[in-house]
């Protein structure tokens, strides 16, 4: 089906082209100067991988990287479990209290991240917990549940309730229907939202900034403190690696439903652009 109108609006197309240039200009600059052989951020003097070598030899940066990967993995797994349970419960429960719960659980999505960060900081210190990677992980799980819930609910809503009834009809208890039919059908959405959360948590700065201890720090917090001391090509290298890694995860998250031959992609769920 073609949604093409005969004439291209010159203004809109121009804005779009400029927009894409603006969108990618800083990213291209970061990547380019990460391969600069000298410390200058203004002129490219020659190709070199010395900043990457520096990065891989900096054991404290590597520790931060490992910490961030660990946090992201645990947070993705935790929020996937909790968020899916929430999505299933909210989508099927019919009571008024169920809807109220639904509203409360989406609060983290509309709360500015700094508020969540401050609240988490007070919560953990109030409980007498020592700030560490554990507190970061707990905070990230809490923040990420809503993302999983939104994506999984979107997929559930597009699933006919008759599918679940068919499972019951063919001999499943409610729980067996969930395990044998609903969850397998949700696999692409689960993978997609898991990858998305992994990327979001891996990159997250604000929440980690408020809830982390002194050492080891998650990678974004570590980078933030170096940025405050000034721009350096080494940060360009780390930044390039982080951008590439997140981009890879997001592209995967977007492509997952395609790999399963599903018509609805994660992108549709994010963009809400699913065609009727």
């Amino acid at each position: 089906m073609s949604r093409r109108l005969e004439r291209r609006p010159a203004f809109a197309v121009t804005v779009t082209v400029v927009f894409f240039a603006w969108l990618y200009l800083p990213i291209v600059a970061v990547v380019l100067f990460s391969f600069n052989s000298v410390k200058s951020l203004a002129t490219f003097q020659g190709f070199s991988t010395r900043w990457y070598v520096d990065f891989f030899h900096d054991s404290s940066l590597i520790t931060s990287l490992t910490a961030s990967l660990g946090i992201a993995a645990v947070a993705a797994a935790g929020s996937l479990i909790l968020g899916t349970m929430l999505a299933l419960g909210l989508e099927r429960i019919r009571s008024r209290s169920g809807r109220a719960i639904g509203a409360v659980t989406l609060l983290p999505l509309v709360t500015p991240e700094i508020v969540t960060g401050v609240a988490a900081l007070l919560f953990f210190t109030g409980l007498g917990m020592k700030l560490s990677l554990v507190t970061v992980t707990l905070a990230e799980i809490t923040f990420s549940i809503a993302y999983v819930t939104v994506i999984v609910r979107g997929r559930l809503a597009s699933m006919s309730p008759e599918v679940e009834e068919a499972a019951r009809d063919l001999g499943c208890t409610p729980w067996q229907a969930v395990r044998q039919v609903i969850l397998p059908t949700l696999v692409p959405a689960l993978l997609g939202s898991g990858l998305l959360v992994f990327a979001l948590v891996f990159d997250d700065f604000v929440l980690a900034f408020f809830t982390t201890g002194v050492d080891p720090q998650p990678l974004p917090v570590r980078i933030y403190s170096s940025i405050r001391f000034g721009v350096s090509p080494a940060i360009n290298a780390v930044g390039t690696l982080m951008l590439a890694f997140s981009a890879l995860l997001i592209v995967l998250a977007l492509l997952v439903p395609r790999l399963f031959h599903r018509k609805t992609s994660t992108l549709d769920l994010i963009a809400g652009g699913e065609r009727p």
Binding site: A29, L41, L200, M242, L243, V251, G273
Partner: peptide, 23 residues
């Protein structure tokens, strides 16, 4: 095109801010 917009936006906010400050 939409993916080309979404991908960088979900990738590190901090690094993208840093990129501007460097530029």
């Amino acid at each position: 095109l939409i993916a080309a917009i979404v991908v960088p936006f979900f990738a590190s906010y901090l690094i993208r801010m840093y990129a501007w400050s460097a530029l």
